[in-house]
């Protein structure tokens, strides 16, 4: 691997934008996160954040169209795990998502923004990049030394 000299390792998984594949993505991330040395508690948080990112892509970027492509890249060393998730659906602006307001959801019988809030709460870093007409990317990262 060309990045071997930096001791940065990479793995990649490509799945279709179907909710049946959420468990495939979770299993993929789970095994590597454990291998790096995160506690099972932190690993559970990481796979939840990744699930939320992929669920948002399926529902919003691909509008539940099941044949879109989602690429999940893991980049990691003994200090940090970075998960980059790429789709080619509708661009997404995270600034438009307000923090969740449960009282409001109670009245509206629906929820929105819970996934985004979970991602921000559970990960050290959440970054969105959209190149319209090309791709959208969400980057999630967790440092090992701050993981407690």
């Amino acid at each position: 691997m060309k990045t071997e000299h930096k001791k940065l390792r990479e793995k990649e998984l490509v799945v279709k934008s179907n909710t049946t594949n959420l468990s495939t993505v979770r299993d993929f991330v789970y095994a590597t996160a454990l291998e790096i040395g995160f506690t099972t508690e932190i690993v559970d948080n990481i796979i939840l954040a990744v699930d939320e990112a992929c669920t948002n892509i399926i529902k919003h970027a691909y509008k539940s169209f099941p044949e879109g492509e989602i690429t999940v890249k893991l980049k990691y060393n003994n200090k940090k795990l970075t998960i980059v998730i790429i789709d080619h659906g509708v661009p997404f602006n995270p600034e438009t998502i307000p923090d969740p307001d449960l009282q409001k959801y109670y009245r509206q019988h629906r929820v929105g923004g819970l996934g985004m809030y979970l991602m921000k709460s559970l990960m050290d870093e959440v970054k969105y990049v959209s190149v319209p007409g090309k791709y959208n990317q969400v980057l999630l990262s967790k440092n090992l030394n701050t993981a407690h």
Binding site: Y106, H109, V111, L114
Partner: peptide
Amino acid sequence: SSAGLGVFMA
């Protein structure tokens, strides 16, 4: 996940 939590709100 939050999709499951959403069912309770619905």
